[in-house]
Simulated assay, not measured.
Amino acid sequence: MILSQVDTVEDISKEVFQKKYFIPQKPVLIKGYAKKWKDFDKWNLDYIYDQVGEQEVGLYDNKPADPNKATDEPVTKMRFRDYIKLIKSQPSDYRIFFYIITDHLPELLKNFTYPDLGFKYFKRIPTLFFGGSEARVLMHYDVDLGDLLHFQFEGRKRVLLFAPDQSAFLYKVPLSVHTVYNIDYETPDYSQFPALQYAQGYEIFMEHGDALFMPSGYWHFNRYLEAGFSVTLRSFPSGPGRLLKMLKEVFVIRYTDKLMRKILKKKWVDRKQRKAYENSEQALNNYLKKKNI
């Protein structure tokens, strides 16, 4: 992988953000951006622990999804407070995925403000994500194709970002929003995944209060380096073209994949994995031929 440093700023105006990042769809890291919030001191695991009561949450781990089950089915469930105790006291790869604040913890909606950066937020689903110090999230892009403003809290996190035009080098799985399961993005094996070494992206290390702008359709891999959590604010898809693409992703590709997975189970998953290899090998051959390598 060819990884560059993302643009990093301490603060940013709406005008600069729109001109340099939103319109050209370029990522940017805004250091300590959440510190502007009046209730910034509440964005920690202890405060969440005090607020969740007796809620139970579904947990995911680093293992590939079971081909005989739905991809969004959790591997286990646990009391939210017990989960927070666990990740604070010991290494764990358990994580909480897509916890919608509006539905489960609306009190938190009072503790942040939507940054005035010039795009329209989808205020129905501000979303929390949690992870232990061993947790990682498979390389993927968000199916709704919204622009994302992603805030990190408590522990540090490593993020890899790739633009949509790098899909061919990432071993994208057909009819899916993720890459093949067996790529180790911490120590990539280029002998097994030769196309990956030509993928051009960004490496970002996020800390407490940082915000990362991830443009629509960007691939992202998250690795929790310490126990922590994040909140993602997303925009509506901008423009009719992106909206149509989003509807296709959600209602055609996603449900076709779910149906085939239910019918064929592991055979379908294996078939898509093989196709991902074939597509990336072809892309690599075309790239090397074009560059006369």
Rank of each mutant, 00 (worst) to 15 (best):
Trp219Gln: 04
Leu160Tyr: 03
Tyr49His: 06
Phe119Gly: 06
Arg136Gly: 06
Leu244Ser: 12
Gly132Cys: 06
Ile48Gly: 00
Val252His: 02
Asp257Cys: 04
Val6Asp: 04
Leu175Arg: 02
Leu243Gln: 12
Lys110Thr: 13
His104Pro: 00
Glu54Phe: 02
Leu243Glu: 11
Glu56Ser: 07
Lys38Gln: 15
Tyr287Gly: 02
Phe122Tyr: 14
Lys172Asn: 11
Asp144Arg: 09
Pro64Lys: 04
Tyr255Ser: 07
Tyr185Ile: 10
His140Gln: 14
Leu128Pro: 00
Ile125Phe: 13
Leu225Ala: 06
Phe236Asp: 03
Arg158Lys: 15
Arg95Cys: 03
Asp144Trp: 08
Lys267Tyr: 07
Ser13Phe: 04
His220Ala: 09
Thr113Pro: 00
Thr256Lys: 13
Asn44Met: 04
Asp11Asn: 14
Leu259Tyr: 08
Glu249Asn: 14
Pro194Tyr: 06
Pro188Val: 12
Ala168Trp: 02
Trp268Ala: 10
Tyr218Pro: 03
Asp165Leu: 05
Ser13Ala: 10
Lys36Ile: 10
Met139Asn: 03
Pro194Ser: 14
Gln273Ser: 14
Ala65Met: 04
Gly32Tyr: 00
Pro91Val: 06
Val57Asp: 01
Lys262Phe: 10
Gln55Gly: 01
Glu56Lys: 12
Pro67Trp: 01
Lys123Tyr: 01
Gly217Arg: 01
Pro64Ile: 06
Lys289Trp: 05
Lys88Ile: 09
Ile84Ala: 01
Arg158Thr: 14
Val16Arg: 10
Lys291Trp: 06
Phe122Glu: 13
His208Gln: 09
Tyr218Asp: 07
Leu149Ile: 11
Arg223Phe: 05
Tyr255His: 12
Lys69Pro: 00
Ser176Glu: 13
Val173Gln: 08
Val6Ile: 15
Phe17Lys: 05
Asp41Glu: 13
Val16Leu: 14
Phe213Ser: 09
Ile263Lys: 10
Ile183Pro: 01
Leu233Pro: 01
Glu54Asp: 15
Tyr277Ser: 07
Phe119Pro: 00
Lys262Pro: 00
Leu264Val: 06
Ser238Leu: 13
Glu249Pro: 00
Phe80Trp: 03
Pro106Phe: 06
Lys289Ser: 12
Phe98Thr: 12
Met1Gly: 01
Asp144Gln: 11
Val173Ser: 08
Lys172Gly: 04
Phe122Cys: 11
Lys77Tyr: 07
Thr179Tyr: 05
